[in-house]
Nucleic acid binder design. Structure first.
Lengths: 206, 206
DNA sequence: AAGCCAATTATATCATTGTATGATAGCGCG
DNA sequence: CGCGCTATCATACAATGATATAATTGGCTT
């Protein structure tokens, strides 16, 4: 597994927290314990570190289901595993639709939880890899001047320099300059690279 | 909703089938009824027509859950809504993980089922649109000669004609021929188009 | 006010690409 | 055997793209 990963345990039952804590630590995972959603939010802003949530659906204050939704709205992409003592089917469906990695009815076997955590951490890793690529591209794209961005979009759409010039009411030479600058700033060695970058950035001409 | 869409109802309870049947027909949907998975498989090969499945998890012969998996293995992408009279949480989780649109515990309200069907049909529509694009591209790609495919892959990767020629031990002129043929056959007006097609086809130069 | 940067245009040179024309060769199929 | 397709290479020309040098303008910062 990944030993830098942190499992955030949120449950109001201290004995269960401790049990999970030792289970995870026995496999080399780091853990954090919280007795409520509020405690989690107050304590640890889970930046972009690897990890996952393990939480009960019924918690003091905010339910695990609402929390799941709230995290999503906040843009915090942390894979979640939900637990429940008295869950029903609609609750399960809602959790899974909201993207939960798993939904475990208490009592569950240690191995079930460990498997779920492994999947959650892997899913989180994939998400981080994917979003890191996009973020890197966005960062590069942000360094472009407005004109360079326009030219990049049109060139990536397949327009010739001449056509871009007509579209933006510029001379072809100017387009070449911006095009070259955009390629250099984006780190694109070839036009194919630039097209793929524009694709990943979702650049659509107008 | 979509009135060409067909809802395939699979349940061994004839009265429930009839109830669902009239519910769906009242909203303009077409329906087909089957009392088992075997009957469905024997009767209707659900080609590429819009539609979705509504089936019980417990069925004579093969369970709805196993059927879900089997359909996936057969490459039949038909969104499924599962129903259950005595379902539990693990069963629900398994169904949702397998891609079920919804999992409804009997008894459910008519509107819940209709909402689920609407979502299922929409999801199916999206899938068909996406796969139709890919299939069209694959069909075009299949008309390319082996050389044209090689050249297309390398050109899309960003190599210059000269570099492609070196890679394939050809003259630059020959590369141009194949490149032009590939562009024409694929219907790509610009290099950017070809790159996007190669991307969609998952063409990676080894 | 001076300096920096984005944006613009121009000239010039060189590499790359697109396309047409022509030619040769192997392969399978009726 | 001839026909068509694929594959190969060549010459030639026109269009396009990449890059450097140089100059002008306007906005923003120091």
């Amino acid at each position: 597994m990944q030993d830098e990963a942190v499992v955030y345990i949120i449950d109001d039952d201290a004995s269960l927290r401790e049990a999970l804590d030792s289970l995870f630590r026995s496999t080399g995972l780091s853990t954090r314990q919280y007795d409520s959603v509020a405690a989690f939010m107050a304590a640890a802003p889970p930046a972009d570190t690897p990890g996952c949530l393990v939480l009960d659906v019924r918690l003091p204050g905010m339910s695990g289901l609402d929390f799941q939704q709230k995290l999503d709205e906040l843009g915090i992409r942390l894979p979640a595993i939900l637990m429940t003592g008295h869950g029903d089917i609609p609750m399960t469906v809602r959790a899974m639709k909201a993207g939960a990695v798993d939904f475990l009815a208490k009592p569950f076997r240690d191995q079930e939880m460990l498997d779920a955590v492994a999947i959650a951490l892997d899913r989180g890793r994939q998400q981080r890899i994917a979003s890191a690529k996009i973020e890197a591209l966005k960062a590069l794209h942000a360094t472009l001047s407005p004109r360079e961005r326009q030219v990049m979009a049109l060139v990536s759409a397949g327009l010739l320099n001449k056509q871009v010039a007509g579209e933006l009411d510029l001379s072809e030479i100017t387009v070449k300059i911006h095009r070259g600058s955009a390629m250099r700033k984006m780190g694109a060695k070839t036009l194919a690279d630039l097209v793929r970058m524009a694709e990943a950035l979702g650049l659509a001409p107008e």
